[in-house]
Computed example of a mutant assay.
Amino acid sequence: MTNTTKPTSDAPKPTFDSYEEFWPYYVAMHSRAATRWVHLTGTLTGLAITAYGLARGRKRYALALPLIGYGTAWPAHWFIERNNPATFGHPWWSLRGDRQMISMMLAGRDRELGEIAAKWLAENR
């Protein structure tokens, strides 16, 4: 990572040289369990509606994934975390981070995510 500036709405976003450097930052932007669970719920709901629509031959239902997924996740950042979504500065790595975070949550590893977030925030405040 080339910049370890504290992530606030008025501070510059940190820059990263790889996804591996970005990952702990991404998790830190989801430091509260409520934010992670809103992400999980929105993503799984969007996936379910998309799968249902595609199975029924209604391609427009594919819009449910980004609309419901991001439509629930972004407000969680503003109202729960009080930060801006990492998607705004790092869209592709954030998408990969969403997948990795949700996979860990589904595997029962939410506590580990909280530990990663706490460590990154302690080192970068």
Rank of each mutant, 00 (worst) to 15 (best):
F22G: 00
W37G: 03
A48Y: 01
F88C: 01
V27R: 02
L63S: 06
S103G: 15
Y26H: 08
A28S: 15
L121C: 04
A62E: 05
I80M: 12
L113F: 13
W37L: 15
R32N: 10
L95I: 14
W93F: 07
E81T: 14
L67Y: 09
Y26G: 02
R99K: 09
M1S: 13
P85W: 02
Y19R: 03
N83F: 07
A122K: 06
N124Q: 11
A62P: 01
S9H: 08
A73C: 13
E21Y: 07
T43D: 00
P12W: 01
R99E: 00
M1I: 12
A64K: 04
R99A: 15
A122H: 05
R56S: 14
S18L: 03
W92G: 05
A117H: 10
R109I: 13
A64S: 12
R32D: 08
R82S: 09
A64Q: 05
E21R: 06
V38T: 06
N83G: 06
G69N: 10
F22W: 07
R99D: 00
G97L: 09
L67Q: 06
R111K: 15
A62Y: 03
S103A: 14
Y26I: 09
H90D: 07
R111F: 11
Y61E: 10
E123Y: 02
P12Q: 07
N84Y: 03
T43V: 11
N84V: 13
G89I: 02
G42C: 05
R96G: 08
A11I: 07
T50R: 01
W93K: 03
M1G: 13
A64M: 08
D98Q: 10
W120G: 04
L40H: 02
P91R: 08
G108W: 11
L63V: 05
N83R: 14
I102P: 04
M104N: 07
G42L: 02
Y26A: 09
M105K: 08
A51S: 12
A86E: 01
A48F: 04
R60L: 14
T2Y: 11
H39E: 11
W37Y: 15
G114P: 09
W37E: 00
R125E: 11
G89F: 01
R36Y: 13
E20M: 00
N3S: 13
L106Y: 03
A73R: 06
A28H: 05
A11F: 07
D10E: 13
W78N: 10
A62H: 02
